[in-house]
Design a protein around this nucleic acid. Sequence first.
DNA 1: TTTAATTTTCAATAAATTTTGAAAATTCAA
DNA 2: TTGAATTTTCAAAATTTATTGAAAATTAAA
Lengths: 168, 168
Amino acid sequence: MTLTEAKAQFISSWGAFGSHWGINRTMAQIHALLLISPDPITQDDIMEQLSISRGNVNMNTRDLIDWGLVDRVLIPGERKEFFTAEKDIWKVSTQIIKERKKRELDPMLKLLTQLEEIEGDKKDKEVKQFVETIGGIRKFGGQADKVLDVMIKADESWFLGSLLKFFK
Amino acid sequence: MTLTEAKAQFISSWGAFGSHWGINRTMAQIHALLLISPDPITQDDIMEQLSISRGNVNMNTRDLIDWGLVDRVLIPGERKEFFTAEKDIWKVSTQIIKERKKRELDPMLKLLTQLEEIEGDKKDKEVKQFVETIGGIRKFGGQADKVLDVMIKADESWFLGSLLKFFK
DNA sequence: TTTAATTTTCAATAAATTTTGAAAATTCAA
DNA sequence: TTGAATTTTCAAAATTTATTGAAAATTAAA
């Protein structure tokens, strides 16, 4: 397999992969392209390599920047803006965990806490099951929250090293 | 807040939550409804409570069954089929992890292994970055794979207990 | 069997999401 | 300043995904 084929394959698969994770396909493809680009590239480079419009590149690079996965880079003497992605996959994943925790897990836990305080007869079968289910999810989510916090703060080598030793 | 309001709120939020995780909104809503239903319910119950069509209920319950999150239940003396969901959230999440690992992580790791074997000058900057990125993701994914395998096999109390102690 | 109840399928339709591209806004060198 | 290069915005169009509902298939009681 040549580099060109492999690149195309990786970009396409990373895009499909991303769409299973609530990330839009093009955003994941742009991310893939940046991950394998040794030097920062421009909007036009991305447009050309992925055959997508300028507006599309603009919106999706902005989202990637909001997610903390991509940075704008200014190159002295160049008028255009350049983009580059964090290459350390550990940093990439902790960043994603951090953002998703903030955007999804934290609000869900807040809601569950509210939902547990419903009025009604605790002996009623419906009420009982509701409170139990919500309570169970909230507790589980709360523990996951703690574990993720440690992961986010942890240093890669320390964390994976210890975790694997722990699981051996 | 009354039970009725709380139920509606939970079903709606669980649906939105699910859509960030590659699960379709209606499938997640049906799952939510089953999670808080003390007894098994029928297709017609689901149609009525969520105001969706028979075909939609049928397809999505089938998917939930494929995911191992919902079971068909036969109630003696009843003609209709009933559905019920696993209520233990630990079991629910290990089941989801197991399925997603099989459907997404494993095929991705297989692809990455292939992509690492590209032809080309290893001193070329493009080739070098590609191999490094792919290698990094593959190694990380491989470790995640191992950790998830242990989680899937683990018992909840053992797992969370040990992990929290470990992180203390 | 026959028949009515129930479930499943799937083409048509609807809804949601993504993409485009051209106009507006911004930036910066001269 | 001016104006060319570049980026951003966003309404319209295209595409993708989800939903409907009625016909076909299946099931099980009579």
